[in-house]
Each structure stands twice: as structure tokens, then as C-alpha cells.
């Protein structure tokens, strides 16, 4: 999707005239999106090894604070971004979905690392969920095992571009009377129940490949 910049509908010549007198012109949407993308507060939610790289990103060498995202909140009620870093197991999935439901809109999800995208190296395990995008919608996928801190910053910049291109009238979370809640899966005798959420995820259809 193309990233929209803070464009205003005003003529360029008039803009530069006004700037000389100290008046800056922009659209309401541009200002609103600029405020939102420059202060994304992540939820402190590290599951496994990728969490250590996330903490390293927040430390002195790779400093995520210069992007405005340095304030990790412990409570989901105060966070806008959930960085799912690490393997999501079937035992942990109901808690992840519950946490996602508790975050207020607008909210975003970055899946960091191969394990939360699709199960990763542990894909054949009996307790491993093959990707958290079976239950909640994901905005940015970030491959790597673990992704370097620079890769996490790149993912954050991509998310910022996505936020820039969102428009207030068309976004569903800004409509009246919206109540969006994703169903929480339950523990079954040999797996989770339901195995995936049909509104969010469709499994790949396996095709038989014949030769000749």
C-alpha cells in the first residue's frame, strides 16, 4: 500500500509564502496520523528468545526511544502495539487473545520472529500454535530467528508508514458503536477448540501434485 505523506490540499506556492511568515498548513488527518505514529506505546509482552532482542532494541545501542516507542507498558489497557515475540504455544493462546481483546482501539500487532508467524522451527510440535495469525489479525510480519534489533526497527518503520496511510473516515475502529471482540479458544482433549478463527485465517488447501 502506498504511504501517504502529510499532504495538504493547498497550493505549494501559497504554502511556502505562509511558511515564511511562520504559518504551517496541513490536513487534520496528516496531523492526527503524525501524532499517532510518533508515539506508539508497545505492550511489555515477551514470550521467548525474541524478547531478549526486543529488550536489546530498547537499550542504549539500538535505542527504540528515538522512534517514540520507548515506553513499554505493563498493562494492556494502556498500550497500542503488541509485539508478539517468541513461540506461541497452545497453552498460552487463550491468554494472548484475551490480552488482545483488552487493548483499546486503535491497536496493532507485529509478529516478531519465525515462531509467531508460522510456528517457526518448532512447527511439528504438539503444543505449538502454527502462527498467531490464526486467531488475531496481524499488521506486520517480521522474519528472523531471532531478528536483529535493526530488523525490529525496520518493522516499526513499516508500521509507521502503514499508520500514515490510514484515513479517519474509512477506518472501522472510528465508526460509531463498534465493538470488536475476537473469540477466545478453549482447551480441548488434543488441541485447541476451534483450531483457527475463520474470520481471520483460512488454511491453505493442499493439492495433490501428480507427475506425468
Amino acid at each position: 500500500m502506498s504511504a501517504a505523506k502529510n499532504i495538504s490540499q493547498v497550493d505549494e506556492g501559497l504554502k511556502s509564502e505562509l511558511q515564511k511568515s511562520g504559518i504551517f498548513v496541513t490536513t487534520l488527518e496528516g496531523l492526527y496520523n503524525w501524532g499517532r505514529r510518533s508515539s506508539i506505546w508497545p505492550l511489555q509482552f515477551g514470550l521467548a528468545c525474541c524478547a531478549i532482542e526486543m529488550i536489546a532494541t530498547a537499550c542504549a545501542r539500538y535505542d527504540i526511544d528515538r522512534f517514540g516507542a520507548g515506553l513499554f507498558r505493563p498493562s494492556p489497557r494502556q498500550a497500542d502495539l503488541m509485539i508478539v515475540s517468541g513461540t506461541v504455544t497452545k497453552k498460552m493462546t487463550p491468554q494472548v487473545v484475551r490480552l488482545y481483546n483488552q487493548m483499546p482501539e486503535p491497536k496493532y500487532v507485529i509478529t516478531m520472529g519465525a515462531c509467531s508467524i508460522s510456528g517457526g522451527p518448532f512447527k511439528d510440535g504438539y503444543n505449538v500454535l502454527k502462527g498467531i495469525d490464526r486467531y488475531i489479525p496481524v499488521d506486520v510480519h517480521l522474519p528472523g530467528c531471532p531478528p536483529r534489533p535493526e530488523a525490529l526497527l525496520h518493522g516499526l518503520m513499516k508500521l509507521q508508514e502503514k499508520i500514515d496511510s490510514q484515513q479517519i473516515e474509512k477506518m472501522e475502529w472510528y465508526q460509531k458503536g463498534l465493538k470488536r471482540e475476537f473469540p477466545v479458544p478453549e482447551f480441548g482433549p488434543n488441541g485447541l477448540n476451534p483450531p483457527y478463527n475463520p474470520d481471520v485465517f483460512q488454511p491453505q488447501q493442499h493439492r495433490e501434485i501428480t507427475v506425468g
Binding site: 503444543n127 482447551f187 482433549p189 488434543n190
Partner: peptide, 22 residues
């Protein structure tokens, strides 16, 4: 201790079959 309470099999046995394997 490691699996949830309602789980009904013993996974490390040689005859255990997973649910929904790709």
C-alpha cells in the same frame, strides 16, 4: 505440569498421534 489439565494423551509415547498435523 507442562500440558493443560484437560489434555488426554501422553505425548512422548511412541504411538501418540497429533491432532491436525500439516
Amino acid at each position: 505440569i507442562l500440558m493443560w489439565e484437560g489434555f488426554q494423551h501422553h505425548p512422548l509415547r511412541k504411538d501418540y498421534v497429533q491432532d491436525e498435523q500439516d
